[in-house]
Computed example of a mutant assay.
Amino acid sequence: MVFSVVLVAGSVQASECQQDRVSIRGDWGQAAFTVEVADDPRERAQGLMFREHMPSSHGMLFLFEKPQQVSFWMKDTLIPLDMLFIQSDGSISHIHENAVPHDTTPIVGGAGVVAVLEVNGGLAARFGIDEGSELQHPAFDQAQAAWPCVASSSD
């Protein structure tokens, strides 16, 4: 099976952030996903429902206005997903792997969640993404970010 997700082992540097891209790093290496951003109630409610396929290099980033406890379900979701629950500094606090399509059981991410990244089920384990891994995205407060964005140079 071929994956088109960028996975880089070794030294990881800060890079310029883009709204439609999330980078993740940890002791296991680095991965990057092209993301759709769901940052309002309507988009968050729709999520990835009714989609029959999502490329392995893609995901959806749910953004919340303030840290809170969030929960998801898979009622009208057709593909298994890994859900990465993220704190305000961009660190992953909880991972729910391989959420089952059509399941109505609430998936709770814990307290203080400001974002959730959904990717295809099994990718977190395949890459070794774990709790404590760090995300880089412009939506995180860059003054608090564990992995801040690099400002683009306009000089």
Results as ranks from 00 to 15, higher is better:
127 F>N: 04
77 T>N: 01
77 T>G: 02
12 V>Y: 05
133 S>R: 03
65 E>M: 01
73 W>A: 01
123 L>T: 09
95 I>C: 01
124 A>N: 04
87 Q>Y: 08
46 Q>P: 09
14 A>C: 10
62 F>N: 11
122 G>W: 05
109 G>F: 04
113 V>E: 07
135 L>I: 05
22 V>P: 00
50 F>N: 10
36 E>V: 12
20 D>S: 10
51 R>N: 08
106 P>K: 06
155 D>S: 14
95 I>A: 03
75 K>P: 07
141 D>K: 01
3 F>K: 14
146 A>E: 07
2 V>Y: 13
149 C>P: 03
118 E>I: 10
74 M>I: 04
144 Q>T: 10
43 E>W: 06
20 D>F: 03
46 Q>D: 14
148 P>L: 02
96 H>F: 14
142 Q>Y: 08
125 A>T: 15
33 F>Y: 10
48 L>W: 00
130 D>T: 13
151 A>Y: 10
47 G>I: 06
93 S>M: 10
151 A>R: 15
23 S>V: 13
10 G>R: 00
108 V>Q: 13
40 D>P: 03
146 A>W: 05
137 H>D: 06
114 V>D: 00
130 D>S: 15
137 H>R: 08
40 D>C: 07
77 T>M: 02
27 D>N: 08
63 L>E: 08
23 S>Q: 13
22 V>S: 00
141 D>W: 00
19 Q>H: 09
100 V>L: 12
99 A>T: 07
69 Q>I: 12
92 I>H: 03
139 A>V: 12
153 S>P: 12
107 I>P: 08
57 S>H: 14
106 P>R: 05
10 G>I: 01
11 S>C: 13
138 P>I: 00
90 G>P: 01
80 P>V: 03
101 P>K: 04
121 G>P: 05
63 L>T: 07
70 V>N: 07
48 L>S: 00
1 M>D: 15
122 G>K: 04
30 Q>P: 10
26 G>E: 00
118 E>C: 08
124 A>Y: 00
72 F>C: 06
55 P>A: 11
80 P>R: 01
104 T>M: 13
64 F>H: 00
155 D>Q: 15
153 S>E: 15
65 E>F: 01
86 I>R: 02
94 H>T: 13
105 T>D: 14
136 Q>H: 04
104 T>A: 11
124 A>E: 01
1 M>C: 14
